[in-house]
Each structure stands twice: as structure tokens, then as C-alpha cells.
Design a binder for these strands. Sequence first.
DNA 1: CCAGCTTATGTAAGCGCTTACAGAAAGGCA
DNA 2: TGCCTTTCTGTAAGCGCTTACATAAGCTGG
Lengths: 332, 332
Amino acid sequence: MDVTIYEVARRAGVSIATVSRTLRGTGPVAPKTREKVLKAVEELRFTPSRLGVSLAEGRHAANGIVFPNLSGPYYTEVLLGYEEVASELGRSVVILSTKGRTRVHDLVKDLAGRVDGLMVFGHTAPDDLVAELVRMGMPLVFVSREPLAGADTLRSENTESARALARHLLEHGYRRFAFLGAPIATGDDVDERWQGVRSVLGGAIEAVPTEHYTVECGYQAARTLLRAPARPQAIVCSDDEVALGALLAAEELGLAVPDELAVTGWDDIMAARHARPALTTIRQPMRELGARAARALDELITGARDTPRHLVLTTELVLRASCGHHPQEEPR
Amino acid sequence: MDVTIYEVARRAGVSIATVSRTLRGTGPVAPKTREKVLKAVEELRFTPSRLGVSLAEGRHAANGIVFPNLSGPYYTEVLLGYEEVASELGRSVVILSTKGRTRVHDLVKDLAGRVDGLMVFGHTAPDDLVAELVRMGMPLVFVSREPLAGADTLRSENTESARALARHLLEHGYRRFAFLGAPIATGDDVDERWQGVRSVLGGAIEAVPTEHYTVECGYQAARTLLRAPARPQAIVCSDDEVALGALLAAEELGLAVPDELAVTGWDDIMAARHARPALTTIRQPMRELGARAARALDELITGARDTPRHLVLTTELVLRASCGHHPQEEPR
DNA sequence: CCAGCTTATGTAAGCGCTTACAGAAAGGCA
DNA sequence: TGCCTTTCTGTAAGCGCTTACATAAGCTGG
């Protein structure tokens, strides 16, 4: 950190331009000169300052990622896929969580000043700042959000898989349903799941809000729902965490799942697989979502592509014990 | 991004020093002058370049975090606690995953050049580079690692809680045990857990390695173990993921948990709580670990403290159904 | 040996911002 | 009004690095 390119140049008896060229391979350097420079670099343990390089290059070699909170396994998996690809592409990853924070506008803006592009989950960055970043030409990729002009969007399919799930429940013979975890915003992921399910089940399903999409809120809402006189036969949950909460409520109320009540989730997080009964759910390719987002962002940053693109990744119905008995049911 | 401090100065009819002073509050500025500057800033939508500021200040206002992989919920929770505090302290968080990567030495070194201090999980950064970073005076906090001269270390307590767990299993009446997920390195977390358990159970427990500390490896090792003639009555697992794998193996082999086999984990991740039977485990204060690490690193960076410190956080035995029946057992 | 071309190297100008220090301006008091 | 003190402002020098362009050095062929 203390050694600068000037000291290397002095020790090697060359100019700083020659040191730079040697280290970066950006121009011709005589073999003897090269040796002298590398020797000096090694003796002085010189590492170029990231700040100096970035300022001179006019680029950060870093990507930002804005997410609501990491406590949901969903975000973790996406982040992991993203970080892996970003690293392969030689980019650091700077993270920012916005949930519960004040001055989000300032936080995101600061982040934008440190990176070459941003990936943003849904609506976690303020809309006015998003509009400004788009105007400024900042490369942006949004995950789990409706298409936005001037930026890439990437999401998993919701509607068709929701339909498939609903049809499957009908095949089990259920006729009374509830959707636990009502949509907060029109057009977001949960809304699409709701719309898909409702397009198949019609008036046979009602939406029940949860305060948040968490285990605890799912538990509370399910407990209330399951104590009412007219109990649904099956609960379709917005996501796996809410579904885990519903399982807890059923357990507490002595309702056998799936014999007395069916429960489904969405995401296929680890806890969904290890719950008993294991949750029927829709598997989201979360890591691939992150990886694709990182690649898309790289294209925008390098200029390999300058027209925004909107992608939808395939999801998959995963049948397990929580929705009913299946002849060839997988054990886990 | 395109607007520089020079344009603001020109528009406001003042020097760049005055613009800087106005925005940073680092010196006296006449009220009228201040208004002119702020007006120009707003009209031009000027945001100071993070790079310029950092280079001139000689600091990044960012912390780095090096971890093996995010796929374990443990790391996620620590990271969340860390990011929350770092953000409060005005620091961005730059992440780097090292598992499965080549040139880790270079990756960590690049990261070190972008931040004011680093938090490192265990041994995920190469030892020679760690020694160099210590020599250079870089602020370092290690999590889950034995004390290291020149840097802070922070870990959760292992040995006493492992003893408490072992004693509890003895109280259930078990007399034959296995430790699933043998230690890889002397002195690391899993080794301390093993040592603690063995100090109570002595020759009644044997260590069984798993290739990795994952559900899949735990499943494979447990399946092999449980098919052998001399089956243990209780399996103490290195961590919750390995324990979840052991539960899967027991389920597949038709062994009732806890009646025919007891299983315990470590960490208290979400999936451990939602498994059935719910896992008896040791709760690690993972978020607090991350939060404390971020605060410790801040003290080192700001110079509020310059002597390394070694902290151990308390862990807690959490009794659930997987180790046996308890008179007042919590439902979840 | 000379001319022309290619390879190698150094100088200077930035990239965007902070701030020490010197000087100017303003205010207060005798 | 003059002097002294305080407040305000601008200039210049960096922070560490990259690189365009000009020049020097080296090599090859006639």
C-alpha cells in the first residue's frame, strides 16, 4: 500500500510508463528492461493501487447488487450465482441491503458511484433514482420485476407454473383453497403467482394477506385462517417461508398434512426439502438467475450489447408429500 | 458521473475548494456563496466521484469480506449481521467467495486493494497473504479461527457447549455414539466441538469423516454408518447440514428418530428448526458474530484501538425432538 | 554505410477530488 | 480612520495510475 509506481520506476531505472507497460502488458518492453522491472516489483512487493488504476482507467471493475435483505434463502442463492460469475469476469461485488434502512436513496447512489453497473432486486431501489440512473446510462439489470425501459430485466416464470400447481391440486380432489401471502404490488412475482393460480381455481380461492413473506407472518396468518369455521382444503403459499409458517400452524392445531390440509410453497429452499412433510413447491433456478444477471450486466458494461433485454427463466413444479400422496413419490 | 467539481465551480462562480468545503462542511463558507454552490449542484445533479474522493482522502470507505461459499446458511447470517453494521458505519461491503476458485491469492489481494479492512472466515485466505497483510498493517478480523498475532479473532464458543450437549445425551441414557463430520484442521470450530464432546464421552464416541460439511456428505456417511452392525444410539453432527443428511439417511433406513436413533446438529439454521423431528442443536449467534466483527474492524480502521483482541461469543444448547423426549418440549 | 521501418522508452497531461497555506475581505474596537 | 482579528476564498500541490504522442534506439536490406 505504501509503495508507489514511482519507487518501482526509480529502483528499476526506468519511467513509470515502462513499469505500467510491463505489468499490464499493454506495450512493447525489452526483455532486459522487463526483468529489471519485475525484480524491483518483487523486492518492493509492489501492488498497483486499485484506486489509482480505477481513476485512470475510468472504471471500477466492480458490480453492485441491491437487495432487500439476506435473511431469505432465495436472495442468498441468487447472490451466490451472481458473485461466482462476476468473479470469473474479474469484477468485485459490492453489496447493499436496503430493508429497514433510512436514506436508501443516498445509499444506492453511493453504491452507484463505486461500481460499473448494478443489479437490483425488484423495487428495492427508489424509483426516482432508478429513473436517474437510466438517464445517466448506468448499466442496470433488474431481477424479479416487470420490464422497465432502458434496463435489462430477468425473472423466473410464475404464471404457467402457478397454473400447473393449481391444476395438480385439483387432481388431488381439493375444492376449497386459500392463497396465503397476498400480492403487495401489481405485476410483481407474487402477483403473477396469484393470477396464475386464480385463473385455474377462480372463485374457489381467496387471497389472505401476510404482513411480510416470512415464516412468522405465514404462521400467524395460517393460524387465524385455520381456526375459522370454513377451512380451506389446501393452502397455496406465496413462497416457501410462508408455507413453512403454515405447516407450523397446522401442526400446532393438530391438522395432519396432507390428509386434512394440503400446503404448497414456492422457491424450493433447503428448509422446504427438510420439512416433514416435505413441501411441494415450484423450484426457481435461483443460482442461474444470479449468474444470468451477472452476464447480462457484463454485456451492458462492456458495450457488447446496448439494447435492453427482458428474460424469463423456466421454473419447475416439484411434487412432494405436502400436497397429497403420489404413487411414485420421491423420498426427499 | 459526467459532471465534475470543476463544472459546478464554474457555474457557481467559485473555486473547486469552495465547492468541496460547501459539500463536505469542512470549512467556513459564506451563506450566499453556499446557496450559489448548492444551486449549481442541484441544477447539474452533481455527485462527487467516489474514486476521486477515495484517492484524495486515501481511504475507500469500504470493508471486504472473504468467505468460502454462501451456500451454507451459517455464512449468510454472519454476512447479514456484518453488512448491517458496516452500512450504519458508512462503509460499503465488498464480498469475495474463494471456494473452488483458482488464483485465490490474487483475488484476495485485489480485494485488499479496494477496502480499508478485511473480515476473513477461518482459513479462506492463503496464509502467506495473511502474513503479508498483517505485516503491512492492514486491519484484519478473523471469524471462526484460532487466535492470530496482529489481527483480531472472533468466534463462537464450542467446547463448553459441546460438553453440555454430550452430558445431555448421557442423561437420555445413550451409551454408544458417533461424531459425524470429523475435524479437518486442528483448532478449528469442528475440532473444538469434537474435543468437547469427546472429553465427556471418551471412548464411547468415534469420529466419522464426511468429505464436506454438507447435507449430501452427511447423508452418505450416515447411511454407511447406520448400515454397519454396531450402530450408535446417538449421532452428534459437526453442524446442522450434516445432521440433516443424517436425518435423511435414518428416514430412508426406516429408523425412527429419536426412538431408535438420536441426532444432534450445530448452528440452529432455519432448516434445522423445520425438519421433523426438529433438530436439537447448538445455537450460534451468527448475526451477532457478523455485527461484532464489523464493529471490531471499524475500531482497527479508525485507530480507536490498535491492539488485537480475541473474543469468544456464547452459544446455547437448544433442545428439540431429535435427541429424545423432553417433558416440557417446545413445539418448534 | 545509410535509409527506412519497427521496437522501445520517456514526458506530459489527465482521471476527480481534497486541503494546506497564503492572501483577501469583512467586522469590531479604540 | 486605522489596526487587529476573524472569516472567507483561491491557488497549487498532491493522492496513484494510465497512456497519447514524440523521440530514441535497434534492426534489416540495399
